[in-house]
């Protein structure tokens, strides 16, 4: 979780906790119910008011997405051209786009044809529709990954936890056929087979592909995919807030002057 969010959440919960302990002596009893394992927290490059994306990690993450996750998960809201946001150059993007075949309208005799992808195309989905995706995945639907980080409580930490949370089921637990045990998935039975292991990919930059490293990289990529505007947003924010602080100061000084003669 980003520290900003964490801070505000902390503030919110402490205010409410204060109120509760004042009003209702048994506040802790409220926390009954489903106990979920707490998520491991990773120090993400994109946390905090000044955080930016570690572009090298995001590029490695894209490699993992393209080679592994994209076999099952779509990413419908991204265009190939958007990849300039993680620092890929025009030729790289053209080559990546051209590596897929996309529908290209119809030819002169009215037959549907395909053409190589272009940077302006959206990421090609692995399955033509939900039914096909389910049929290939034991009935489960691999969710679109464009904004998956925003669509789960816990965000980046949660996705990281899922990717690293696979193990043998505890003794006595029987898994449904085709399911895997995952400590962090609600209900602990997940239809996605463990997608990442140590050495699942070879990194061109020499980074050691441990499971943790791979998970961190792909989550950095997914976080960028969900909020590609984040860096620009925060930079604009710093300027806007500084400007407003100055404006507040000036306005307040002026207010003091205007009111000086009123008693």
């Amino acid at each position: 979780m980003r520290p900003m969010n964490k801070l505000v959440r902390l503030m919110r919960s402490s205010v409410l906790a204060g109120i509760f302990s004042a009003v209702l002596p048994f506040a802790s009893v409220f926390a009954q119910g489903t106990e979920e394992p707490s998520l491991p927290h990773i120090n993400w490059s994109f946390e905090g008011p000044f955080g930016t994306y570690d572009l090298a990690a995001a590029q490695r993450g894209f490699q993992i997405y393209k080679d592994i996750c994209a076999n099952c998960h779509s990413m419908n809201y991204l265009h190939y051209r958007d990849l300039s946001g993680i620092g890929l150059n025009e030729d790289q993007i053209k080559a990546i786009a051209a590596s897929v075949e996309v529908p290209g309208g119809v030819n002169d005799s009215g037959q549907p044809i395909t053409r190589p992808g272009r940077p302006a195309d959206t990421f090609k989905a692995p399955f033509p529709n939900e039914q096909a995706a389910r049929a290939a995945n034991n009935g489960a639907y691999p969710p679109d990954q464009s904004i998956l980080v925003l669509a789960r409580k816990g965000g980046a930490d949660y996705i990281y936890a899922i990717l690293t949370g696979y193990s043998e089921p505890p003794a006595g637990m029987k898994l449904q056929p085709g399911m895997s045990y995952n400590k962090y998935f609600p209900g602990h039975q997940i239809a996605m087979p463990q997608p990442l292991q140590d050495g699942s990919v070879q990194y061109a930059d020499g980074t050691k592909p441990t499971l943790e490293q791979e998970a961190k990289d792909v989550v950095t990529f997914l976080a960028w995919a969900a909020e590609p505007e984040m860096v620009q947003r925060k930079q604009t924010g710093v300027r806007v807030v500084l400007f407003l602080l100055m404006l507040t100061g000036l306005t307040y000084a002026l207010k003091r002057r205007v009111w000086a003669d009123v008693h």
């Binding site: 900003m4 505000v8 947003r233 925060k234 924010g237 710093v238 807030v241 407003l244 602080l245």
Partner: peptide, 12 residues
């Protein structure tokens, strides 16, 4: 200022 902090740093 409060508004901007939410919009730019914790929009969700």
């Amino acid at each position: 200022i409060v508004f901007a902090i939410f919009v730019f740093f914790a929009p969700n």
